[in-house]
Design a protein around this nucleic acid. Structure first.
Length: 571
RNA sequence: GGGCGCGUGGCCUAGCCAGGAUAUGGCGGCAGCCUCCUAAGCUGCAAGUCAAGGGUUCGAAUCCCUUCGCGCUCGCCA
């Protein structure tokens, strides 16, 4: 058992015992104090009523009855609190032993045998990814990594929306407009190259009635399940997706599976959903278009009507999404959807409809706010847009300038490699450090921050640890708490010991923004130790300190890995 | 207008779900630190009506109500 867990359990049983000693058996809270006054505290204010004594008196009384042993080093009563201190020797010994024996698996929870599907990104294949939506792949990928570390069997999935007017129009454009008639693209990459065709197709359609009809007939055939049209559109969507995948690849986001929306038209499962919903008592229709009335499902206002077929009987996006979710539920125990905040109502309606379909599972949605520019919302049409490709390129370029200015000993190739790792690290870290539901304003100065609370700050600590170990050569790994007595050493160990709990919180509660926060705390503790405590020239403490450095290095590396960021050995 | 979300020093942000002790860090500012393991670092200082008001409570950034500001949403679009 992890030391901190053991410490908490011991505190709990000691307080419980002391209370029953006093003849009462009440619930009490154990909290982590906001300041460094204690490792754990029990406020006695709630006990005051039951015991009819002042909280201060209760705390003092309890304090006297508690015998400190095991992981509990001491307890004192302060202003109605019982303040517990963890035994530093136990903390150091147990934590470092855990890390040394578990290695890279430290903080990895045992396999749960639960399969979780995480759907993320799912950006429409009609243009390059812009930073307004860049939170999606980064949040989704980080969450997946946290869940895996929590012991879940995770499959990540991109739902490709290859159905609808947008993609059909794009397909028409790509197949009918000669290359000579479109503007050159700003980047030689499929997603960027296809955009001019989309723009051109749009303007042609607006002027040409015949084209408009052609497109609408294509759409009609598509939605009726015409395999030939579906295949054509799919082909173009594949091309676009190839570009998007390249972008995702540069930020180390790789999905296990791509599922095409058209599949649910082609295999008839969307049709089955329609038939099944029509049987429901919540179903109604107007002019042949069917809908569900959802006011009994916690949906308020005038959003209670959920339409699932058009008047001509064809299915809608939401209908296909129902078929898709039923499919996911067949394949996994849980389904997580990482969605933009504009999907909130839709997701709520989807959940209600799934319930009506008799599904016993519910999708777990995770919403994020769109990233905006200082001057407002990003808009491709107004040209106020920053592509993720541009952001990455700029970040890598800036990182390159950084390495070059401080490491003239490295080869060009090594500097380039480090620049990519730190530039991408800065971008990913900057996006995931903020709570997803908080709105974010994109500023180059924040996105390209390499100091303080940033990805490179963590990477730098890791590189420093590697550097010490490299210079140390062979050493004996020893855990001797008697040789690690410095405040900086103990503070570092204390942070290391929190890792398993942090991972649990990130995965189980989907609070992934706590991971960068933890990483910063860890890197900061390491840097303080680094500045204050010599390692290589520390006589008989050398091996112990090197062991500590190696443990820190490992946890730093695993923290970065779980954030989807590479830990460079030098920078 | 209805629904949902957000509002914490000049700027960004943690804590809010499970109320508790002097509100977490960072950026920027100011003052220091490279004869020592990478200064993308370390140390110190200044800077806060936790949007506003009310309520619950021994105790509220945290829970409840009202107001204001911002975002999203309210399609037989995807």
């Amino acid at each position: 058992m992890a030391v901190r867990t053991r410490f908490r359990e011991e505190v709990e049983s000691k307080v419980k015992e002391a209370l029953s000693d006093m003849g009462c058996d009440v619930r009490f809270d154990i909290e982590v104090p906001s300041t460094w006054v204690a490792d754990l505290a029990v406020p006695c204010f709630t006990l005051a009523k039951v015991l009819r004594q002042a909280p201060q008196a209760i705390a003092a009384d309890l304090c006297k009855r508690i015998v400190c042993d095991g992981a509990v080093n001491s307890v004192e009563d302060v202003n109605g609190y019982l303040n517990f201190h963890i035994d530093q020797d136990v903390l150091v010994r147990e934590t470092l032993k855990d890390i040394v024996s578990a290695g890279p698996d430290y903080g990895k929870h045992p396999a749960k045998g639960v399969k979780v599907n995480v759907e993320h990104t799912s950006i429409n294949p009609t243009g390059p990814i812009h930073v307004g939506r860049a939170r999606n792949p980064i949040i989704g990928d980080t969450l997946s990594r946290c869940l895996r570390r929590c012991g879940y069997d995770v499959e990540t999935e991109y739902y490709v929306n290859d159905v609808g007017k947008q993609v059909v129009l794009l397909t028409w454009g790509v197949r009918n407009i000669p290359a000579s008639e479109v503007d050159p693209s700003d980047r030689d990459k499929n997603d960027h190259r296809l955009v001019p065709y989309y723009r051109k197709a749009n303007s042609i359609m607006e002027e040409d009635e015949a084209v408009r009809e052609e497109i609408s007939s294509m759409l009609q055939r598509f939605e009726n399940g015409d395999q030939e049209v579906i295949a054509k559109v799919r082909e173009v969507a594949e091309m676009m997706l190839e570009g998007l995948r390249e972008t995702l690849d540069t930020i180390d986001v790789r999905l296990d599976r791509y599922t095409w929306e058209s599949q649910y038209i082609a295999d008839g499962s969307a049709r089955k959903v329609v038939d099944s919903l029509k049987e429901s008592s919540y179903c109604g229709d107007s002019d042949g278009a069917y809908h569900l009335e959802l006011k009994d499902f916690g949906i308020h206002g005038k959003n209670t009507r959920f339409t699932f077929t058009r008047g001509d009987g064809t299915t809608l996006y939401t209908t296909r999404d129902l078929a898709y979710h039923l499919d996911k539920f067949d394949r996994a125990d849980r389904a997580v959807d990482v969605l933009g905040e504009d999907q909130k109502l839709g997701s709520q309606q989807l959940t209600a409809a799934l319930q009506i379909l008799g599904s016993d599972k519910k999708p777990e949605a995770m919403f994020y706010s769109f990233v905006a520019l200082p001057e407002g919302k990003m808009s491709t049409r107004r040209g106020t847009v920053v592509y993720l490709d541009d952001l990455i390129e700029e970040a890598v370029e800036r990182a390159y300038e950084e390495v070059r200015s401080r490491r003239e000993d490295l080869s060009e190739e090594e500097m380039r490699r480090i620049a990519v790792i730190t530039g991408v690290g800065a971008v990913r870290y900057n996006i995931v450090r903020v709570q997803p539901e908080k709105k974010m304003v994109f500023r180059w100065e924040d996105a390209l921050n390499f100091d303080g609370n940033s990805g490179p700050f963590l990477q730098y600590s890791h590189a420093r640890a590697c550097s010490i170990l490299r210079k140390a050569g062979d050493f004996e790994r020893t855990v001797d708490e008697g040789l690690l007595t410095d405040d900086y050493e103990r503070r570092l160990v204390s942070v290391l010991s929190m890792f398993p709990e942090v991972i649990r919180d990130c995965g189980e509660n989907k609070r992934i923004h706590m991971l960068p926060s933890y990483g910063h705390e860890l890197a900061s503790a390491f840097n303080q130790f680094y500045a204050a405590v010599p390692v290589l020239n520390s006589g008989d403490r050398r091996d112990s300190r090197l062991t500590l450095v190696d443990c820190a290095r490992m946890v730093l590396k695993e923290t970065l890995y779980t954030l989807g960021i590479i830990a460079p050995e030098e920078m």
